[in-house]
Amino acid sequence: MKRVQFSSPYLPYLFIAPQMAIIFVFFYWPSVQAIQSSFYLEDPFGFGSTFVGLSNYSDALGSVQYQSIARFTLLFTVLVTFLSLGIGMLLAVKADAVLKGSSTYKTLLIWVYAIAPPVAGLMGMMFFDQHIGPLVKLAAFFGWDMKVGLNYNDTAIAMIIVSVWKQIPYNFIFILSGLQGIPVSIREAAAIDCRSGMRRFWTMTLPLLAPTAFFLLIINMTYSLFDTFGVIDVMVKDKAANNPITLVYKVYMDGFRGNDLGGSSAQSVILMIVVFVLTIFQFRFIERRVHYN
């Protein structure tokens, strides 16, 4: 490790000050606020608050609705993470093997990433529109009467498809650059040592991609848990009540629609703990198996 000498011992702190300020204002301060308000029952009209201890937590965790949303969130996160990682990897491996017109192919795949989540949600809505949606027409062709926004399962499927579709390009870029970081001579040596391309992928390509894949695993889980908010919002807003939502959307609904700031804060704190535990788990148990060059 290279040690850099600064003329003043305070100078390095000055350099990281802007970053720390942002983290403080947008992360630590709201976190502390959330933890604090999760112990109170806030008056919806702002006329003071009452200390209620852990009852916001017990209310949330004890609610059947909350539990079912948590189950859906788990399913949603697992499916979105693995589908977007898997499809992104498949496309990247194929794109890496393309010799002619590869840049056009890659650009077309990456494009989608430039779309903002609400716009993606809107486009997804159009894909699944009752009257003009091509995917609904495709489903109808197979005799499936899709009712996105009305039928719980249909909405869930549409939500997952749009979320995966939105995330594939991101995974694609990272995996492709990861693939291109594998030395050509190692691939060639493997080609001489192993005939089956499939086997080569599992024994050579994937282990060498592990650092990239591990990073993407974390990013994708965070994406599925939090960043899909925009997509979900566009898809279920102003719709009949029985629609699938994730825990993050529930936080928003309870806090800003239901004006239950205390309960909403308690839910955020629960989410924070879940993410904290997940991250620790990933670094302790998965990263250990990742080979960094």
């Binding site: 030395p183 001579s185 190692i186 060639e188 040596a189 493997a190 001489i192 050579m204 282990p207 060498l208 592990a210 080979h291 060059n293």
Partner: peptide, 11 residues
Amino acid sequence: MVFQNYALYPH
């Protein structure tokens, strides 16, 4: 084949 940069499998 023996390669110039060895091409050993790092993992």
